[in-house]
Design a protein around this nucleic acid. Structure first.
Length: 285
DNA sequence: ACCTCCCTGGCC
DNA sequence: GGCCAGGGAGGT
């Protein structure tokens, strides 16, 4: 199981997007035949948790979307099946009756016998099915623009950061500002933009905001290339123990005590808002 | 705007 | 045996 932690990153935006691409062809157009909730805790923010299965069974899945780190399947009848992978969740596709991974907590069986399985040891992830009203009151409606698909222009970002005294690292993680940036990739973006995670958001100069903005897409797409690859064949990757590539490509996250690949300074780690930050005091100002 | 909690497996 | 990882909700 150590292989999972080493070779495959947390389910941040690139991994969630890879999941969406993996699931989409299997689920869109199919009807839901059965839902099995083995860990009730995984069903959350649902007016009546027991009703989730009832809301799902018999409905066709019309589309598969993503906003930030949330996955959304549009169900016929104006319902939205929302899921979040938390920090240890993943979706697996399997044939009914075939081997399943430990911690398979929710199983959604489609009308062709394919199962969509939510595997999540730490159960920080969740699923729910919302009506339009419930969706409008949920966290999803308060998410900022998606970091990958609709990153705001520099001027909007500057406005959003004006007067903010919180460290830029904390603001990057605030899903209401930009949706989809998690702890690993926030550190990568700040390294790339050569900005210290401790800098108050409002202190960033115009060209620094621009540099940070320019760092967002490359970092996420790099993660999508390698993380997506690992995710796609994860079922084979785990038993074989083949190492994924993504961790070795990170420039900041987990590199405290190691030498910065840009300037040679020893990198450091400190805790910002209860989250670990990894950065280079030599070139990140 | 901040802190605490949730949860499990890996690791010391 | 105890600590650590962390996204997001809830409380103050």
């Amino acid at each position: 199981m150590r292989r999972w932690l080493v070779s495959s990153p947390m389910p941040e935006l690139p991994e969630v997007e890879a999941t969406r691409r993996h699931l989409e062809p299997a689920v869109v157009g199919r009807a839901i035949a059965a839902v099995e909730v083995r860990r009730p805790r995984m069903v959350r923010y649902q007016p009546d948790p027991g009703s989730m299965s009832h809301r799902m069974v018999g409905r066709r899945i019309e589309a598969m979307g993503r906003h930030g780190k949330f996955l959304m399947a549009e169900l016929e009848g104006d319902l939205t099946w929302v899921s979040h992978l938390g920090m240890s969740g993943r979706f697996e596709l399997g044939v009914e009756g075939a081997d399943e991974a430990p911690h398979t907590n929710v199983v959604v069986r489609l009308d062709d016998g394919i199962e969509v399985r939510l595997v999540d040891p730490r159960t920080f992830g969740f699923v729910a099915v919302f009506t339009p009203d419930e969706l409008a009151e949920s966290t999803l409606s308060r998410l900022g623009p998606d970091a990958l698909d609709s990153l705001p222009p520099v001027t909007s970002l500057r406005t959003a950061l004006t007067g903010r005294s919180a460290p830029i690292k904390a603001l990057l993680l605030d899903q209401r500002l930009i949706a989809g940036i998690g702890n690993i990739y926030a550190d990568e973006m700040l390294w790339r933009a050569e900005i210290s995670p401790l800098r108050p958001g409002g202190s960033l100069l115009a060209d620094e905001v621009a540099a940070l903005r320019r760092a967002v897409r490359p970092v996420l797409t790099a993660g999508l290339r390698s993380g997506g690859t690992s995710l796609g064949d994860l079922a084979y990757l785990l038993p074989d123990g083949r190492a994924g590539e993504h961790m070795s490509r990170l420039e900041a996250y987990g590199r405290n005590g190691e030498v910065c690949r840009r300037c040679g300074t020893t990198m450091v780690r400190n805790v910002i808002r209860q989250r670990s930050s990894h950065w280079c005091p030599g070139c990140q100002k």
